[in-house]
Design a protein around this nucleic acid. Structure first.
Lengths: 254, 254
DNA sequence: AGCGCATGGATTGTTCACAATTCTGGAGGC
DNA sequence: GCCTCCAGAATTGTGAACAATCCATGCGCT
């Protein structure tokens, strides 16, 4: 094939900024990606929902081309599915894919917990503070029965731990996996069961602070197993929802 | 334009085909992504190389828009870096990022090896066949001193193992990590040493077949350690400090 | 010289119009 | 009644033109 050797004489190297986290540069796009991502995570956009370019463009007040780019990014993250000439849909994971995602989380989050347990004691003050703050938020959401907040906070909890494990690359990978977990949960959750994970998280925080070797890691594994066990890989949920209604009032500032 | 009420009554479900593997639909795009990715992996495109849209468009005989899309995908995979209004460059990982990538590979590939070791014996015939074929290819490349082939084959080896661990999601994650490893190697490799990994791979295959518990996993960890140890990750990135890079960091995202 | 500043050329970013494909709804034949 | 087939409409895909931005070179001034 044609080799891409058309790069001309090397000029100067750009400083490889580690800054941009998502690879998207414009702030507006990042905002839309996050907005749609969160809508999918807390199930305002259930799996299978058609994401019409023009509707989204209107809802966010941007051009269609930009929506197109956003959808491409989300597709790469497996959060939406692009079908040629048919459009974009909120991804609907297969049971196999759901199991794979949870297995991947098992692997990565176990490693994260092991690193956290190996952290020098006492734990950094900011970690403790953020864990405490987070616990309070989750408790409040549980008290209020705010389901969407609980889902969102649950994801944040896992990401918070990943962040303090000190490997941004792993955190990025886990971010995607958590989003896809949300999709899997939305697709396969049983009607009945609802032992919400706030309790698990509380115990996990306590174990992390007390630092009995292996305890926190074991709790994390149990926690992930428990979440996965609550799924019913036979259920098929289907619904469609009006995009504009969902994004009716989007906060201008992130 | 007035708001054309979209997303009407629920219609029909889109066949949630898992078909498109990469998220890119058109075959041409996938081809270009792979082509550029391989060129980066075996260092025909070293880190920092400017990737001008028009040059690429010409080289591949496609429109600039398509190149643009490809670059966006590669940026999402952290293989190229997009700088607003400046263009696309082959990513140049920092030492920190390189360490993170290798740590992530450690975690994932250890898990993969553990799963492979747990496979029922004797190993599937096709796995054995492909391992043998691959070994022959690597031996040949080593004999011929075909450095590019060796790099490519080394990546394929790890992906081959991942594939037979039976988790496509993990394989996908590892694919990205391997590409980024190639970048890290290209950026930080020491001039001198290069005990190429064909030998490591050979021993690993043997251990996998013989199946002394834990041996293959340990070999994989050693292998990854060895590769990383051959890099010079001491922060010698650049003597002069670029002020623009320091202050150019995103003011927008929290 | 060295520094500041304007201009020219090149490259990226955005918008627009149109082509291609699919979906919808109905007419017609069996 | 049910299926097939065929416009019309809606939606996605593509290319080209236009605007914005940046880099480099040269000129004038201190």
């Amino acid at each position: 094939m044609t080799t891409a050797s058309s790069a001309k004489t090397p000029r100067r190297e750009p400083r490889a900024r580690t800054g941009t986290r998502t690879g998207t540069r414009s702030g507006a796009e990042a905002r839309i990606v996050r907005s749609i991502g969160e809508a999918i995570a807390d199930r305002r956009l259930p799996p299978g929902t058609k994401l019409t370019e023009e509707s989204l463009a209107e809802a966010f007040g941007v051009s269609r081309e930009r929506v197109r780019k956003v959808l491409l990014l989300l597709a790469q993250r497996r959060v939406v599915t692009l079908i040629p000439n048919r459009g974009a849909f909120v991804a609907k994971p297969t049971p196999k894919e759901a199991r794979e995602v949870f297995e991947a989380r098992h692997i990565i989050e176990r490693a994260i917990m092991e690193r956290l347990e190996r952290l020098p004691r006492p734990l950094p003050a900011d970690l403790l503070a953020r864990l405490r703050d987070h616990g309070a938020l989750e408790d409040a959401a549980e008290r209020d029965g705010d389901r969407k907040a609980m889902i969102r906070l649950s994801g944040h909890f896992h990401l918070l731990l990943a962040e303090f494990a000190g490997n941004a690359t792993l955190s990025g990978i886990l971010t995607d996996l958590i989003d896809r977990s949300s999709l899997a949960i939305a697709a396969f959750e049983r009607r009945s069961s609802h032992t919400c994970s706030a309790g698990d998280h509380r115990r996990l925080i306590a174990a992390l602070i007390n630092n009995r070797p292996g305890e926190a890691t074991a709790l994390m594994i149990d926690h992930l197993d428990e979440v996965e066990r609550q799924l019913d890989l036979e259920a098929k949920t289907d619904a469609r929802i009006d995009l504009k209604a969902i994004f009716a009032d989007e906060p201008e500032t992130a």
